[in-house]
Nucleic acid binder design. Structure first.
Lengths: 330, 330
DNA sequence: AAAAATCCTGAAAAGGTTTTCAGATATTAC
DNA sequence: GTAATATCTGAAAACCTTTTCAGGATTTTT
């Protein structure tokens, strides 16, 4: 059995209060007792039981992360940022993924209740309000990449709309007029925003958006591949395909190459996210660079600052994105 | 403040013991009290405090996952499997990544002590014994993809050696004699095993391994790209490049294409892992399929069975891999 | 030298649950 | 009708800390 504070007290010949005081350095203690306690603790290999601690303080030192799913490079990179920031701030991380229905989400949040001090939630299929309604109360939130409807939410997101707007404008400036667009996951906030940016850019450039040029996707490579094959069956073939993320775009590249088309001459292609694969695609993929890792660190930092200061004013932060034009759309 | 068991007892007009008995269905309770307790609990929205529970039982319902780093599709997929299995078994997940030094690892394990019931450790740079030596005792382990030295370890791995052996044999059977090999992360268990499989297959086919054909990599795309450029500077150019994983192989494809070579005619290329990107590379990448998701579920299942049965005999499980030959090496 | 202040220390309560123990009530057996 | 059993219930201990409270010892002030 692991040593308890009582064992240390016994060995050092002092009361448990004194042990606690020495270990937490919370009150002055006579030097001789201090050293006796310290050596006793060391000899016994004593570590305070975090469970007992948090029963008393009702703080846990943990942060929960709730994600809709994890796939591809985007999430690895995001988790990287989250974990780094959490370690720096001395929080441990609980993680739970694959929440699509609000039932799932509710269950996940309930299972984290009192095991964490706060929650990082990515719920692209819901609004911040809807999520908060499901949560056990008193649990502070920070939202990532989630639609905000109230004005008192904490969150970090990035400029989905502006990024796709800029990329569309780029293609138009290269002379493209007939542009196919492959959407992301249906009903997802970021996917909607990206589509909205695209459509607005078309309009602002005097191009009428056409339904027949919008193709359903779901952010993965296979979906991009299949959607692109549908694009190629159009009578009047577009000169460019915009995918809603890099994974889809890689599927698009694959389909185009199989069809014997050259990129970007026969067809320009663009992605979104700028994961590492975009740079090493053939040809290198034009994409919208998203600071994914920073998205993770910023979210943790915001949550921690909220935990440390209950008065902290709500903040919605939108990280800027950046066009990275490469060979696939030159 | 959230309701406690005392509030429920008060409201139902019974003792807290009775409430506990009703909620855990642990002893017979008179029907009238039972319904009173149930409705009181419901009205107050009572949920037992898991902290208080685990202080008493010293069980947490949690599993810790310790990873060296997370990057690329491999880890997303692995986490997917882990999370799914954990949810099915009603465990929550603590995660901690980026542990390279044993100091890091020790700290991570210490911070999980008593917050989890068991640990899933992926430590390709260490042996199972070395990890166990750093751990607070009494914490059950399951190792993933880690070198085993003792015969009482629990773990799941996959056939790194055999996969690369088979892939090398495949290339030899296609007539390749001069094959460049790009290694994975230095000193990592899986990287060493893959190299070993490659070298053994060469020997078994009467080909002498050459040092000049082994190039240092680290599993990422850029490393593959750069290593491939070094390959291309060889006077006597190889006819094939084997990368230690798919990410590196994608970097290789990119470098070869930039150099104007056609694949597989000028140069065959192979990967390892068979992540989704392998299928959608151009040309589609020959790879060794690893059941990554299953790796995650198998590890959790093994750990849970160990937690449920202290007598459980140690088990090292090696999942089979499978050659997937595609256009890059035909 | 007495009073006041300072410093250190231990006992005990608190946090929320589960479980043991023993008591009370109701039921069965003779 | 009494004794023995079965059934249900509550009080209290236990899990391991931190923190409050009050007491004792020492030092400082007058």
């Amino acid at each position: 059995m692991a040593a308890t504070i009582r064992d240390v007290a016994l060995k050092a010949g002092v009361s448990i209060s004194t042990v606690s005081r020495v270990l937490n350095d919370t009150c002055p203690v006579a030097d001789d007792k201090r050293v006796r306690v310290e050596s006793a603790a060391k000899e016994l290999g004593y570590t305070p039981n975090p469970v007992a601690r948090s029963l008393l303080s009702s703080e846990t030192g943990g942060i929960g992360i709730i994600l809709p799913f994890v796939s591809g490079e985007f999430f690895s990179e995001f988790l990287n940022g989250v974990d780094q920031a959490a370690q720096e701030q001395d929080f441990f991380l609980l993680i739970s993924t694959s929440h699509h229905s609000s039932e799932d989400l509710k269950k996940a949040m309930a299972s984290m209740y009192r095991r964490v001090d706060g929650l990082l939630v990515m719920a692209p299929h819901m609004t911040t309000q809807a999520v908060e309604a499901l949560a056990p109360d008193g649990l502070p939130f920070v939202f990532v990449n989630t639609e905000v409807v109230s004005d008192d939410a904490f969150g970090v997101t990035f400029d989905n709309y502006g990024g796709m707007y800029a990329m569309t404008a780029h293609l138009v400036s290269k002379g493209h007029r007939r542009i196919a667009f492959i959407t992301g996951t249906e009903n997802a906030y970021d996917a909607r925003e990206r589509l909205r940016g695209h459509l607005q850019a078309l309009k602002d450039n005097g191009i009428a958006p056409l339904d027949e040029l919008i193709f359903k996707g779901n952010y993965d490579q296979r979906a991009g591949f299949e959607a692109c094959n549908r694009v190629l069956r159009l009578e009047d073939r577009p000169t460019a395909v915009m995918a809603s993320n890099d994974d889809s775009a890689i599927g698009v590249l694959s389909a185009l190459r199989q069809a014997g088309l050259t990129i970007p001459d026969d067809m320009a292609v663009t992605g979104f996210d700028d994961v590492q694969s975009a740079q090493f695609a053939t040809p290198p993929l034009s994409s919208v660079h998203v600071p994914v890792r920073q998205l993770g660190t910023a979210a943790i930092d915001l949550l921690v600052s909220r935990l440390n200061d209950v008065q902290r004013a709500p903040q919605m932060r939108t990280l800027p994105v950046e066009l990275r034009i490469r060979g696939s759309s030159k």
